[in-house]
């Protein structure tokens, strides 16, 4: 794994593509957290997740890439858009999306990034992995999931069911026997 590390000065095509996709992901993530329009944040999130799916593809994790597209771009962003619409968010540009501690937040984020980048670059400078296509295909991953990871997989399905029921219970308003308030069903 650490033998014959190629130079950083002659990046391969895969690395160039990965870095471009990573730049797109980080840039659109920055736009997600800085944009002034709520709906645009969700749409930039789509771009970010799509670029990340491309990153997974370059890293030969095909199945994870397609799952990312299906679940994140397909389901999570749609859920978030539903949430935006249902909370009657202003569609246009709104000024109060950021709280007052933006400077502190930026400071903390920059400090986190600095510490982590320093540690990570120092620790993994010599790590090199030649990419071998097919290692993350659905066949390999499915065999692994259903041979080694069956028990966590089943536990996860129970967790999904619990989350589903929890979401239904939380969002219904006509369930009797809530907290002992005198008003029954505010609106």
């Amino acid at each position: 794994m650490t033998e014959a590390v190629p130079s950083y000065l002659s990046p391969t095509g895969q690395e160039v593509v990965f870095l471009l996709l990573g730049a797109v992901a980080v840039g659109s993530a920055l736009l997600v957290v800085t944009t002034r329009q709520l709906v645009h944040a969700a749409l930039w999130l789509v771009v970010c997740f799509g670029a990340l799916a491309g990153c997974y593809l370059v890293l030969t994790a095909e199945f994870v890439a397609w799952v990312q597209v299906l679940i994140y771009v397909g389901a999570v962003v749609v859920l978030l858009l539903f949430g935006i619409m249902l909370t009657r968010a202003p569609i246009g540009r709104s000024a109060d999306l950021d709280s007052g501690n933006r400077l502190v937040a930026a400071l903390v984020a920059v400090a986190t990034a600095a510490v982590l980048v320093t540690v990570v670059v120092d620790g993994f400078r010599t790590a090199y992995a030649p990419l071998k296509p097919g290692a993350g295909a659905a066949r390999e991953l499915g065999a692994s999931v259903f041979a080694t990871w069956v028990l966590p997989f089943e536990a996860l399905s129970v967790l999904l069911l619990a989350a589903l029921i929890g979401a239904i219970v939380l969002s219904r308003t006509d369930i009797p026997g809530g907290p002992p308030t005198d008003e029954s069903g505010g609106d």
Partner: peptide
């Protein structure tokens, strides 16, 4: 593929997320 590249991209994404959690109000 140098492992540094994906790891650094992931670090940057993480700190962008930290900023968003701390700075956003909605």
């Amino acid at each position: 593929m140098h492992i540094v590249y994906p790891v650094v991209v992931s670090v940057l994404l993480f700190s962008v997320g930290v900023y968003g959690v701390l700075a956003r109000r909605n």
